[in-house]
């Protein structure tokens, strides 16, 4: 049975509302876009929406109590909540370098969680 899914394009401030007509996961038609970027965006967003997740983890012995972290690349949107719960359990110790892997292959996404700043150790 044919279904319609609405997707708001984020490629520019206009925010076109694009309609993807599909049977299950198979795309039949894409409507409502006003430029090429819209078609590509809608396709990717329909097949597997992905986001870069950013958060913080607790850090001890550091100049700051929290270390900002990010997934090295985008992860599937439906994995975000699972990853956030995992991030809550992580404790690290200063010093930490920007780019350092904080959690390898977080929640089997094949993406590492990395530090997004240096945090020096304080004695």
């Amino acid at each position: 049975m044919e279904e319609k899914t609405k997707i708001i394009c984020t490629s520019c401030p206009r925010g076109c509302i694009i309609t993807v007509t599909h049977v299950g996961k198979e795309i039949k038609e894409i409507n409502g876009y006003t430029c090429k970027r819209g078609v590509i965006y809608a396709k990717d967003e329909f097949i597997l929406p992905k986001r870069v997740l950013t958060s913080t983890v607790r850090i001890s012995c550091g100049e700051l109590p929290m270390l900002p972290v990010r997934t090295e690349s985008a992860i599937p949107k439906n994995k975000i909540i699972e990853c956030v719960k995992k991030i809550c359990e992580i404790d690290v110790k200063a010093p930490v370098k920007l780019g350092q892997v904080i959690c390898k292959n977080i929640c089997n996404t094949n993406v590492d969680l990395i530090a997004s700043r240096d945090i020096h150790k304080v004695v």
Binding site: I8, C9, T10, C12, P13, R14, G15, R51, K77, I80
Partner: peptide, 10 residues
């Protein structure tokens, strides 16, 4: 727009 979609709609 991007923030509206990724921060609210998501």
């Amino acid at each position: 727009v991007r923030n509206k979609v990724q921060c609210l709609d998501d």
